[in-house]
């Protein structure tokens, strides 16, 4: 498989898996407005994933459809970051996960506007507008929870402490990226790190929260080594295609 195909899958899988995670909250949100907000965000993410898988299907050139790629791979073939597959937990956990991801994605799509690959630049242009809105939503909630009651503060701090180990993986790069960066197609993730740290620190301070001092990092998702949670997501995501192969709506 070529590098571009692998690269698109990484972006697409992040969107799909987080979209699937958030859609678990449909009908289970803490209040109806948040139920609707989180499922709206899920819909945007799944929409972005659709554009990406459709492009991957063309680039892959094996006659697979976007649905084949989204639904018919094994766990080790999914290359999303570990952050997005973490369980929803309480509302603090859901918001903290979303906030880390949105903070990264706003910078990522903004940089991808400059990609020499026209389709990736077009997807970034479309997705950036949506992602800014998600980021505003998750940032405002992070501050409201962090600077809220003792309980909301403790819960969202616990979430930050737990999720922080997965944040570094958003900046993971290997040979898939290297070649594409030279061609001006991929985003050099290292170039986003300073802005990411500045943006996240600013919001954390407003939220009266702090990053854990323990700097332990966990990676693996980009090469298919996942936490136990992904398998559970896939068993639900892929149920229809496994139970009724090739079924269509």
């Amino acid at each position: 498989m070529n590098s571009l195909y692998k690269y698109i899958l990484r972006i697409a899988d992040d969107s799909l898996i987080l979209g699937q995670r958030l859609s678990e909250l449909c009908g289970h949100g803490p209040i109806i407005e948040e139920d609707i907000a989180l499922t709206n965000i899920a819909l945007d993410l799944i929409g972005q994933a659709t554009s990406l898988y459709e492009y991957a299907a063309i680039v892959g050139g094996e006659g697979k459809t976007a649905d084949d790629i989204a639904f018919l791979r094994f766990e080790r073939e999914y290359v999303n970051v570990l952050l997005v597959e973490q369980p929803n937990g309480d509302f603090g956990m859901t918001i903290a996960r979303q906030w880390f991801f949105d903070s990264f994605r706003v910078l990522f799509y903004d940089a991808m506007l400059e990609s020499t690959d026209q389709q990736l630049a077009a997807i970034a242009e479309k997705s950036l507008k949506e992602t800014k809105y998600h980021w505003k939503h998750s940032s405002e909630w992070l501050v409201r929870l962090g600077d809220g009651t003792d309980e909301s503060h403790d819960r969202v701090q616990t979430a930050i402490n737990y999720l922080h180990r997965y944040v570094d993986e958003l900046f993971f790069m290997d040979e898939v990226d290297t070649a594409l960066i030279t061609e001006g197609i991929a985003v050099d993730l290292a170039s986003l790190k300073v802005a990411f740290d500045a943006k996240t620190s600013e919001v954390m301070e407003m939220a009266t929260l702090s990053f854990p001092t323990n700097n332990w990092k966990q990676v693996g998702g980009r090469v298919g080594k996942h936490t136990e949670h992904l398998g559970h997501i896939l068993s639900e995501l892929q149920y229809m295609q496994r139970a009724y192969p090739n079924m269509e709506w």
């Binding site: 609707i36 907000a37 709206n40 819909l43 939503h137």
Partner: peptide, 13 residues
């Protein structure tokens, strides 16, 4: 504003 998100992606409440 009640919510930044509404009944469809294009609306707020």
């Amino acid at each position: 504003m009640i919510s930044q998100f509404g009944s469809t992606a294009c609306k707020a409440h």
